[in-house]
Lab assay of single mutants.
Amino acid sequence: NKFNKELQWATWEIFNLPNLNEEQVKAFIDSLRDDPSQSANLLAEAKKLNDAQA
């Protein structure tokens, strides 16, 4: 299933962003679980936040 692979990839990527704190990671993962179809958008937002906090 396409969404499942995207969800797994986005989850792994978010867990490995070095500049997000635990609460931010949890919030993004919760959002992914709530709406897996938004995984690409949520990953992009997480990466933006990660870069901003570098």
Rank of each mutant, 00 (worst) to 15 (best):
residue 20 L to I: 04
residue 21 N to R: 13
residue 40 A to D: 07
residue 8 Q to S: 05
residue 13 E to V: 15
residue 6 E to T: 05
residue 26 K to Y: 10
residue 44 A to Q: 10
residue 8 Q to K: 05
residue 8 Q to N: 06
residue 45 E to A: 14
residue 19 N to Y: 11
residue 28 F to N: 00
residue 51 D to R: 12
residue 33 R to M: 15
residue 26 K to P: 00
residue 18 P to W: 08
residue 36 P to S: 03
residue 19 N to R: 02
residue 41 N to S: 14
residue 22 E to R: 11
residue 20 L to K: 00
residue 47 K to R: 13
residue 50 N to E: 01
residue 19 N to F: 10
residue 30 D to A: 14
residue 12 W to M: 08
residue 34 D to M: 14
residue 44 A to Y: 12
residue 11 T to E: 10
residue 31 S to E: 07
residue 23 E to R: 13
residue 52 A to L: 13
residue 1 N to K: 04
residue 48 K to L: 10
residue 54 A to E: 10
residue 24 Q to S: 02
residue 33 R to Y: 15
residue 24 Q to Y: 02
residue 15 F to M: 15
residue 49 L to Q: 05
residue 36 P to M: 06
residue 41 N to W: 14
residue 41 N to H: 13
residue 30 D to K: 09
residue 52 A to K: 11
residue 28 F to T: 01
residue 39 S to H: 13
residue 20 L to Y: 00
residue 34 D to K: 10
residue 20 L to W: 01
residue 18 P to K: 12
residue 12 W to P: 02
residue 33 R to V: 14
residue 5 K to S: 10
residue 49 L to M: 11
residue 48 K to T: 08
residue 47 K to E: 04
residue 34 D to E: 13
residue 7 L to P: 03
residue 31 S to N: 10
residue 19 N to V: 01
residue 36 P to D: 03
residue 40 A to M: 14
residue 5 K to E: 15
residue 45 E to S: 11
residue 20 L to E: 00
residue 21 N to T: 13
residue 32 L to D: 00
residue 45 E to Q: 15
residue 39 S to P: 04
residue 47 K to P: 00
residue 21 N to S: 12
residue 21 N to H: 07
residue 23 E to W: 12
residue 37 S to T: 12
residue 11 T to N: 03
residue 20 L to S: 00
residue 52 A to D: 09
residue 42 L to A: 04
residue 34 D to H: 10
residue 35 D to P: 01
residue 51 D to A: 14
residue 11 T to I: 15
residue 44 A to S: 10
residue 4 N to H: 13
residue 36 P to W: 05
residue 24 Q to V: 03
residue 47 K to F: 09
residue 42 L to D: 00
residue 10 A to G: 03
residue 39 S to W: 15
residue 45 E to V: 11
residue 51 D to L: 12
residue 1 N to D: 15
residue 48 K to M: 12
residue 13 E to R: 06
residue 12 W to R: 07
residue 25 V to W: 03
residue 17 L to P: 00
residue 20 L to P: 00
residue 41 N to I: 12
residue 4 N to Y: 13
residue 43 L to S: 02
residue 53 Q to D: 03
residue 49 L to N: 02
residue 41 N to L: 13
residue 6 E to A: 05
residue 51 D to H: 09
residue 10 A to P: 01
residue 5 K to F: 04
residue 12 W to S: 05
residue 37 S to K: 07
residue 29 I to D: 01
residue 28 F to G: 00
residue 51 D to K: 12
residue 41 N to A: 12
residue 29 I to T: 04
residue 1 N to E: 12
residue 4 N to M: 08
residue 53 Q to I: 08
residue 38 Q to W: 04
residue 46 A to E: 01
residue 31 S to K: 11
residue 12 W to E: 07
residue 25 V to M: 06
residue 29 I to H: 03
residue 35 D to H: 09
residue 52 A to Y: 10
residue 39 S to K: 04
residue 53 Q to K: 05
residue 40 A to I: 10
residue 38 Q to A: 15
residue 23 E to N: 12
residue 15 F to H: 10
residue 4 N to T: 05
residue 23 E to Q: 11
residue 11 T to R: 06
residue 40 A to F: 13
residue 18 P to R: 08
residue 26 K to H: 09
residue 50 N to R: 01
residue 38 Q to V: 06
residue 54 A to G: 11
residue 51 D to P: 01
residue 26 K to T: 09
residue 5 K to I: 05
residue 52 A to F: 13
residue 44 A to F: 10
residue 10 A to N: 03
residue 45 E to I: 14
residue 32 L to M: 13
residue 3 F to Q: 10
residue 28 F to V: 02
residue 15 F to A: 10
residue 50 N to A: 03
residue 40 A to S: 10
residue 8 Q to Y: 14
residue 48 K to R: 13
residue 34 D to Y: 11
residue 53 Q to L: 13
residue 13 E to P: 01
residue 20 L to N: 00
residue 52 A to V: 09
residue 13 E to N: 03
residue 38 Q to I: 06
residue 53 Q to R: 05
residue 39 S to Q: 05
residue 2 K to I: 15
residue 48 K to E: 06
residue 50 N to H: 03
residue 10 A to H: 05
residue 22 E to T: 10
residue 54 A to R: 06
residue 20 L to A: 00
residue 33 R to W: 15
residue 35 D to S: 08
residue 36 P to N: 02
residue 4 N to I: 10
residue 9 W to G: 04
residue 38 Q to T: 05
residue 27 A to M: 14
residue 15 F to D: 04
residue 3 F to L: 12
residue 36 P to F: 06
residue 24 Q to K: 01
residue 12 W to A: 07
residue 33 R to F: 15
residue 2 K to D: 15
residue 24 Q to I: 03
residue 34 D to G: 08
residue 5 K to R: 04
residue 16 N to K: 11
residue 48 K to G: 05
residue 39 S to E: 03
residue 50 N to S: 12
residue 12 W to V: 05
residue 4 N to F: 14
residue 22 E to S: 13
residue 51 D to G: 06
residue 21 N to L: 11
residue 31 S to I: 12
residue 26 K to R: 10
residue 7 L to T: 05
residue 5 K to W: 08
residue 1 N to A: 02
residue 45 E to M: 12
residue 5 K to M: 04
residue 27 A to F: 15
residue 25 V to F: 03
residue 49 L to V: 08
residue 46 A to H: 00
residue 47 K to S: 05
residue 12 W to G: 05
residue 27 A to P: 01
residue 7 L to Y: 07
residue 27 A to H: 12
residue 42 L to V: 14
residue 43 L to M: 06
residue 11 T to Q: 08
residue 6 E to R: 04
residue 33 R to L: 15
residue 7 L to I: 11
residue 31 S to G: 08
residue 1 N to W: 00
residue 39 S to L: 06
residue 11 T to F: 14
residue 44 A to V: 08
residue 24 Q to W: 02
residue 28 F to H: 01
residue 7 L to M: 06
residue 17 L to Y: 04
residue 28 F to M: 04
residue 2 K to P: 14
residue 47 K to H: 08
residue 39 S to V: 15
residue 24 Q to A: 02
residue 43 L to H: 02
residue 47 K to T: 05
residue 46 A to W: 02
residue 16 N to D: 03
residue 54 A to K: 08
residue 45 E to R: 11
residue 38 Q to N: 11
residue 2 K to N: 15
residue 7 L to E: 06
residue 1 N to V: 04
residue 14 I to D: 01
residue 46 A to Y: 04
residue 40 A to W: 15
residue 11 T to H: 04
residue 49 L to A: 04
residue 31 S to V: 07
residue 1 N to Y: 01
residue 54 A to N: 11
residue 15 F to T: 14
residue 13 E to K: 12
residue 3 F to P: 14
residue 5 K to P: 11
residue 29 I to S: 03
residue 32 L to K: 00
residue 4 N to G: 13
residue 37 S to D: 06
residue 46 A to P: 00
residue 41 N to E: 11
residue 12 W to N: 04
residue 18 P to Q: 10
residue 31 S to Q: 14
residue 29 I to W: 05
residue 39 S to F: 09
residue 34 D to T: 11
residue 32 L to P: 00
residue 52 A to M: 13
residue 4 N to V: 07
residue 1 N to H: 03
residue 13 E to W: 15
residue 41 N to Y: 14
residue 51 D to F: 12
residue 37 S to R: 06
residue 3 F to T: 11
residue 46 A to Q: 01
residue 16 N to F: 04
residue 8 Q to F: 12
residue 48 K to S: 11
residue 9 W to T: 06
residue 17 L to A: 01
residue 26 K to L: 10
residue 10 A to Y: 15
residue 22 E to Y: 13
residue 31 S to M: 14
residue 6 E to F: 14
residue 5 K to Q: 15
residue 40 A to E: 09
residue 11 T to A: 08
residue 37 S to E: 07
residue 39 S to N: 05
residue 22 E to G: 11
residue 37 S to F: 07
residue 15 F to E: 14
residue 45 E to D: 06
residue 6 E to S: 05
residue 38 Q to F: 04
residue 4 N to A: 07
residue 42 L to P: 00
residue 7 L to Q: 06
residue 48 K to P: 00
residue 24 Q to N: 02
residue 43 L to A: 04
residue 39 S to R: 04
residue 31 S to D: 06
residue 50 N to I: 01
residue 14 I to R: 01
residue 17 L to G: 00
residue 6 E to W: 15
residue 48 K to D: 06
residue 24 Q to R: 01
residue 43 L to R: 03
residue 51 D to Y: 11
residue 13 E to S: 04
residue 19 N to P: 00
residue 54 A to L: 10
residue 52 A to G: 08
residue 38 Q to D: 07
residue 24 Q to F: 02
residue 45 E to L: 11
residue 25 V to E: 01
residue 8 Q to P: 02
residue 13 E to Q: 14
residue 23 E to D: 12
residue 30 D to F: 13
residue 52 A to H: 09
residue 35 D to M: 09
residue 31 S to H: 11
residue 42 L to G: 01
residue 7 L to H: 04
residue 37 S to V: 05
residue 27 A to N: 11
residue 39 S to Y: 15
residue 23 E to K: 10
residue 40 A to N: 09
residue 2 K to V: 10
residue 17 L to H: 02
residue 23 E to A: 11
residue 36 P to Y: 04
residue 34 D to I: 11
residue 1 N to G: 08
residue 53 Q to E: 05
residue 10 A to S: 03
residue 15 F to P: 02
residue 25 V to H: 04
residue 42 L to K: 05
residue 14 I to W: 02
residue 46 A to I: 02
residue 43 L to Y: 05
residue 47 K to Q: 06
residue 15 F to Q: 14
residue 16 N to R: 06
residue 27 A to W: 15
residue 32 L to N: 00
residue 16 N to W: 05
residue 28 F to D: 00
residue 41 N to Q: 09
residue 45 E to W: 08
residue 26 K to V: 06
residue 43 L to I: 12
residue 40 A to V: 13
residue 45 E to P: 01
residue 27 A to D: 07
residue 25 V to P: 00
residue 14 I to A: 02
residue 41 N to V: 11
residue 23 E to F: 13
residue 13 E to A: 11
residue 14 I to H: 02
residue 3 F to G: 12
residue 22 E to N: 11
residue 40 A to Q: 11
residue 47 K to V: 08
residue 21 N to D: 09
residue 10 A to F: 15
residue 6 E to H: 07
residue 7 L to N: 03
residue 10 A to M: 06
residue 50 N to L: 01
residue 51 D to S: 11
residue 2 K to Q: 15
residue 44 A to H: 09
residue 3 F to E: 13
residue 20 L to H: 00
residue 20 L to D: 00
residue 37 S to W: 06
residue 53 Q to S: 05
residue 37 S to Y: 06
residue 29 I to F: 05
residue 49 L to W: 04
residue 36 P to V: 06
residue 36 P to I: 12
residue 44 A to R: 13
residue 4 N to R: 04
residue 9 W to V: 07
residue 33 R to S: 10
residue 49 L to E: 02
residue 52 A to W: 10
residue 14 I to M: 04
residue 30 D to R: 14
residue 25 V to G: 02
residue 20 L to R: 00
residue 21 N to K: 11
residue 47 K to L: 07
residue 12 W to Q: 10
residue 33 R to A: 14
residue 31 S to Y: 12
residue 9 W to S: 06
residue 17 L to I: 01
residue 45 E to G: 05
residue 48 K to I: 09
residue 33 R to G: 08
residue 2 K to M: 15
residue 40 A to H: 08
residue 9 W to Y: 09
residue 29 I to G: 02
residue 8 Q to D: 09
residue 46 A to V: 02
residue 8 Q to W: 14
residue 17 L to W: 02
residue 50 N to K: 01
residue 33 R to K: 12
residue 44 A to G: 06
residue 9 W to K: 10
residue 30 D to W: 11
residue 49 L to K: 04
residue 32 L to I: 08
residue 35 D to V: 05
residue 18 P to I: 07
residue 28 F to Y: 07
residue 20 L to M: 01
residue 14 I to K: 02
residue 51 D to M: 13
residue 49 L to Y: 04
residue 5 K to L: 04
residue 42 L to Q: 03
residue 2 K to F: 11
residue 25 V to Y: 03
residue 30 D to P: 00
residue 7 L to S: 04
residue 38 Q to H: 06
residue 13 E to D: 04
residue 17 L to N: 01
residue 11 T to D: 03
residue 53 Q to M: 11
residue 7 L to W: 08
residue 9 W to F: 08
residue 8 Q to L: 13
residue 33 R to P: 01
residue 19 N to A: 07
residue 40 A to T: 10
residue 46 A to G: 01
residue 1 N to F: 01
residue 32 L to R: 00
residue 40 A to R: 14
residue 29 I to M: 08
residue 38 Q to R: 08
residue 15 F to I: 09
residue 11 T to Y: 12
residue 3 F to H: 12
residue 53 Q to T: 05
residue 47 K to D: 01
residue 21 N to P: 02
residue 30 D to N: 14
residue 24 Q to T: 03
residue 42 L to R: 06
residue 17 L to V: 00
residue 18 P to H: 11
residue 28 F to W: 03
residue 25 V to Q: 08
residue 8 Q to H: 05
residue 41 N to P: 15
residue 49 L to H: 03
residue 17 L to D: 00
residue 31 S to L: 09
residue 45 E to F: 12
residue 5 K to D: 15
residue 41 N to M: 14
residue 29 I to P: 00
residue 34 D to P: 02
